[in-house]
Amino acid sequence: MTTFKLIINGKTLKGEITIEAVDAAEKEKIFKQYANDNGIDGEWTYDDATKTFTVTE
């Protein structure tokens, strides 16, 4: 398992979430669903070196 981080830079929601997953593709799906469930629609980036997804509205 690898630890992945999501950084949220939303208009109404900001924060960080850290979760373990098998791979980045699995985690991306979970993070995007979390963002969608919380009304966050923005630009996504991924840094493989730090295993960090960022979504910015």
Score class of each variant (00 low, 15 high):
Asp41Lys: 13
Thr50Glu: 03
Asp47His: 03
Lys32Gln: 10
Phe4Arg: 04
Lys32Trp: 11
Asn9Ser: 08
Gly10Phe: 14
Thr2His: 10
Ala49Asn: 08
Ala21Phe: 14
Gly15Tyr: 15
Val22Ser: 12
Asp37His: 05
Ala35Asn: 02
Val22Arg: 08
Phe53Leu: 06
Glu28Lys: 04
Thr3His: 08
Asp41His: 12
Thr12Asn: 09
Phe4Trp: 04
Val22Leu: 09
Leu13Thr: 07
Glu28Asn: 05
Ala24Gly: 13
Gly42Thr: 02
Val22Ile: 09
Glu26Pro: 04
Ile19Lys: 00
Thr12Leu: 12
Thr50Asp: 03
Gln33His: 05
Ile30Thr: 02
Thr50Val: 01
Leu13Asn: 06
Ala24Asn: 14
Glu28Val: 09
Tyr34Asp: 00
Gly15Lys: 13
Gly39Tyr: 07
Glu26Phe: 09
Phe31Ala: 06
Thr3Ala: 05
Ala25Gly: 12
Met1Glu: 06
Phe31Trp: 08
Asn36Ala: 14
Asp47Lys: 00
Lys51Ser: 04
Asn38Thr: 06
Phe31His: 00
Trp44Asp: 00
Thr3Glu: 07
Asp37Gln: 08
Gln33Lys: 11
Thr52Cys: 05
Asn9Gln: 10
Gly42Trp: 15
Glu20Thr: 10
Asp23Lys: 06
Ile30Val: 06
Thr2Gly: 05
Gly39Val: 06
Asp48Thr: 04
Thr12Trp: 12
Lys27Met: 15
Lys51Leu: 05
Thr2Met: 12
Tyr46Leu: 00
Thr2Cys: 15
Glu28Asp: 08
Ile40Cys: 11
Gly15Glu: 11
Lys32Met: 12
Asp48Asn: 04
Glu26Leu: 09
Thr45Lys: 04
Thr3Trp: 12
Met1Gly: 09
Ala21Thr: 11
Lys29Met: 10
Gln33Asn: 05
Lys5Ile: 13
Lys29Asp: 09
Ile17His: 03
Lys51Gln: 07
Gly39Lys: 04
Ala49Gln: 10
Lys5Asp: 12
Thr12Arg: 08
Ala35Arg: 04
Asp41Ala: 11
Asn38Asp: 02
Leu13His: 10
Ala35His: 02
Glu20Ile: 13
Phe31Gln: 00
Asn38Gln: 10
Gly42Tyr: 11
Asn36Lys: 14
Thr54Met: 07
Thr3Leu: 11
Thr56Lys: 05
Lys32Thr: 08
Gly42Ala: 05
Lys14Cys: 15
Phe53Glu: 01
Glu16Thr: 13
Thr56Asp: 03
Ile8Gln: 00
Asp47Tyr: 02
Ala49Met: 08
Val55Leu: 11
Glu28Phe: 15
Asp41Gln: 12
Ile19Ser: 07
Trp44Cys: 05
Ile7Arg: 03
Thr18Met: 08
Val22Cys: 11
Ala49Ile: 09
Ile30Cys: 15
Thr2Trp: 14
Thr12His: 12
Thr18Phe: 12
Phe31Glu: 00
Lys14Tyr: 13
Thr52Tyr: 01
Thr52Gly: 01
Thr54Ser: 05
Glu16Lys: 05
Tyr46Val: 01
Asp23Pro: 07
Asn9Phe: 12
Lys11Gln: 07
Ile7Val: 09
Trp44Tyr: 03
Asn38Pro: 02
Asp23Ala: 07
Glu20His: 12
Asp48Lys: 04
Glu57Gln: 12
Glu28Thr: 04
Thr12Glu: 11
Asp23Ser: 12
Thr18Gln: 09
Thr50Cys: 07
Asp48Glu: 11
Phe53His: 01
Thr52Leu: 01
Lys29Leu: 11
Lys11Glu: 06
Leu6His: 01
Glu57Ser: 10
Val22Lys: 10
Ile17Gly: 01
Phe31Gly: 02
Leu13Phe: 14
Ala24Phe: 12
Phe4Pro: 08
Ala49Trp: 05
Ile19Asp: 01
Glu20Gln: 12
Lys11Ile: 14
Trp44Glu: 00
Asp48Met: 04
Gln33Ile: 07
Gln33Ser: 08
Thr54Arg: 04
Thr54His: 09
Gly15Asp: 09
Glu28Tyr: 14
Gly10Leu: 15
Lys14Leu: 13
Leu13Asp: 03
Leu6Ala: 02
Lys27Pro: 15
Leu6Tyr: 11
Glu20Val: 13
